[in-house]
Design a protein around this nucleic acid. Structure first.
Lengths: 222, 222
DNA sequence: TCTCCATATTTTGGATCCAATATTGAAAAT
DNA sequence: ATTTTCAATATTGGATCCAAAATATGGAGA
């Protein structure tokens, strides 16, 4: 399918570790708030602590882990306020991305989006939570990349990452999966008609619902 | 003046190196595009390469340096498009920050802003470019911090950092310094009257002028 | 029993050393 | 003379080792 398939190990150890850690955090295998024991992790991943620490520094920059000198790293925990803040910032940035994308979308772009939407619908039908999360993400990022603003896209990507640990739970519910499918359809339709306001609105509805749902999933008082 | 004065060396080597590198890049001592020779830098800063590399990873996350595996780090260069993109993103985020700040500003906050504005005016009068850049930055960050959205403030800070190398040149011109002083006054006035739209507008004018000026300072074809 | 302090252990931060990759320069072949 | 190949060198990536700090442990005193 893809030339450098998902299983191919990256050229450097820190890139490998980075990918592994990101997955572990965004899928929830490393729980929010959990301390990161460097020695144990390094041994588990079969690398020394040096590349591990560099990967952690990258993740710290992205807000997925926190660090205190001489105390170590922890998987970041988001308070309700943090979550709301992230979603508000996403709203600002994604609106811009969509508006730029709308006026630049080619037919090929729309075809790609349609194809990805196919993946989303298949995952939703199959009830495959992980595939759903991945395809949904690809759908949005594909759209945002069309804005032709690489830095903006990167920022948005980072914001998504920082809440992935919580978002995965969202797709556990079949109703939510159906909802996402419908909302994507509405977005695609608006994009085809170059209706920017409408496209932005559908995404905002989507986000608002997600943040509402996530409130109930948050730890009691972080 | 300040309990942990500027000259105090941070507790860990990587924090020290991080601060040093940030200064070197944002003041232009390390020029955009310049390769970063780790051995030489480590020796110059009297540390080993390990904390240096961790600091570089942090700076990479902030976009101040770029990295290629097995080739090394370079000080990031911004194309005109990059610059415009950064300023556009800033516009989006700073508008939000200002609007939130306006409804939360206390008298103490306004007093602090007024005090910082005093620093700005003194630096402008003295023609001290570095002091001017610093005070201007403090003025804006103080305002943005009042929004009570720490992540938003951090993002904005990072965006400022990424263009600091170019912005320093801006203050070389006395006319620009005067302009900044006047625009800050207008912003402060609008803030006092809780006139959000107006405050946002003054900042937008400010940014637009800066980005126009910076166009002429960019390298020919990066 | 609880608190406080000294000590031992664990864990992180940093330095040095080695390996892998990239770059440079020179020699050889066309 | 130009290009290509191959070796020498320089530079980065990673592993191991040591030092510093924090945490856990245990005992003495109130």
């Amino acid at each position: 399918m893809n030339p450098d398939g998902a299983g191919r190990r990256p050229p450097t150890a820190q890139q490998f570790v980075l990918a592994e850690l990101r997955r572990a955090i965004t899928t929830g295998r490393l729980r929010p708030g959990a301390p990161i024991r460097q020695d144990a992790l390094a041994e588990e991943l079969q690398v020394s602590r040096v590349p591990l620490r560099e990967a952690l520094k990258t993740l710290e920059g992205e807000g997925l882990v926190t660090h205190q000198a001489h105390k170590g790293y922890c998987v970041a925990t988001l308070s309700l306020d943090d979550l709301r803040e992230v979603y508000r910032i996403r709203e600002l940035l994604e609106e811009e991305a969509v508006r730029r994308a709308v006026v630049r979308l080619t037919d090929a772009d729309l075809d790609r989006l349609e194809a990805v939407q196919g993946d989303v619908e298949r995952a939703a039908a199959a009830g495959d939570v992980l595939a759903m999360a991945t395809a949904n993400r690809v759908f949005h990022m594909t759209l945002f990349d069309c804005a032709g603003m690489p830095r903006l896209a990167r920022l948005i990507r980072t914001l998504w990452d920082s809440t992935d640990a919580y978002r995965s739970m969202y797709y556990g519910d079949g109703g939510n999966r159906e909802r996402v499918v419908k909302e994507h359809r509405a977005t695609l339709d608006a994009l085809r008609r170059r209706a920017a306001d409408e496209a932005v609105a559908t995404l905002n509805v989507h986000r608002d619902h997600a943040v509402t749902e996530l409130r109930s999933l948050l730890p009691a008082s972080p």
